[in-house]
């Protein structure tokens, strides 16, 4: 016993202690800041050189931002878009995951529905949005539904791949030890699909908010997409950029403070690789 207990501790020693990870992570963060500052500098210089109304400098964009922020208008439209993004995201993830897992586990169903999936994957977002508005009217449900339907096929494809790789050995273990269906789903199946959920939500969030803007532009009277359309007609590029950057900032905040901590938590059991 002494022997393998020792190898157990050796295994732990290979993993970086949580405190040691802080110092090297300052490096990459600094790189990010420098990189973004570089991009800002290029934009600034280009705007000064161009000296045109259609390419505003960063201070002009900031000014447009403060103007709409002070009236609260900007936050209202951000909130409306965020609401649509979140609703469509939840809808797409739930429906897409259920369909994807079913297809991944059932060969016949997959063979039958695969052509449907390919069809839906290839319908342009614009077509789905226009049809949704025509069939269901210019309302919130049609808007959110159209965004979700655009995303569902991607979630299905990712989760189907995940369900195909489910470990049979663990499933047999769960059967022998008489896990209930709920217990098997929660402790055996879903944890194995976690990387696939992560991948689907990563690509999902960015895709969904881009589609959300088109939906708002075509048939809603508020939201970032509506505002961008408005400022497009006024030829106000500074305001367009202000809204875009503000919403990108919202999405980055979600990424850093929600998605990444959640991912770190749900993958804490994985053996950590040594950092290069």
């Amino acid at each position: 016993m002494a022997d393998d207990r020792q190898s157990g501790t050796a295994g732990r020693a290979l993993m970086p202690a949580s405190g040691a990870g802080v110092l090297p992570s300052v490096g990459p963060r600094l790189v990010t800041v420098v990189s973004l500052a570089g991009l800002l500098a290029i934009w600034w210089v280009a705007a000064i050189l161009a000296d045109s109304r259609v390419l505003p400098t960063p201070p002009q964009v900031a000014e447009a931002f403060w103007r709409d922020a002070a009236t609260g208008e900007l936050f209202f439209h951000l909130a409306m878009t965020l609401m649509r993004v979140v609703a469509a995201f939840v809808l797409a993830m739930v429906i897409g995951s259920v369909i994807g897992i079913c297809l991944g586990m059932n060969r016949e169903a997959n063979r039958f529905f695969d052509p449907w999936l390919i069809l839906f994957l290839n319908i342009p977002a614009l077509v789905i949005i226009v049809l949704a508005y025509i069939w269901f009217g210019l309302n919130e449900a049609a808007a959110i539904g159209a965004i979700a339907v655009n995303k569902i096929p991607n979630v299905v494809v990712t989760l189907r791949e995940g369900a195909r790789t489910l470990d049979r050995d663990l499933e047999e273990m769960a059967r022998v030890y008489r896990f209930s269906a709920m217990k098997t789903l929660r402790h055996v199946v879903l944890p194995q699909l976690q990387p696939y959920f992560a991948a689907a939500s990563r690509t999902g969030i960015s895709l969904i908010w881009k589609i959300a803007l088109v939906v708002e532009l075509l048939g809603r009277s508020n939201g970032v997409g509506f505002q961008i359309n408005l400022y497009f007609q006024l030829f106000d590029v500074a305001s367009i950029l202000a809204y875009t950057l503000a919403f990108v900032a919202v999405m980055l905040t979600i990424e850093f403070f929600l998605v990444q901590p959640f991912e770190a938590h749900s993958t804490r059991w994985r053996p950590k690789r040594a950092r290069g």
């Binding site: 050995d169 663990l170 273990m173 022998v176 030890y177 402790h187 055996v188 944890p191």
Partner: peptide
């Protein structure tokens, strides 16, 4: 109940040792 010890340990990697035993 029937218990099995398989060739591979077949533990749930995302659960601690204690949880792996308690789950059954």
């Amino acid at each position: 109940r029937v218990a099995a010890v398989f060739q591979e340990p077949r533990l749930l990697p995302w659960r601690t040792v204690d949880d792996n035993v308690r789950l059954v």
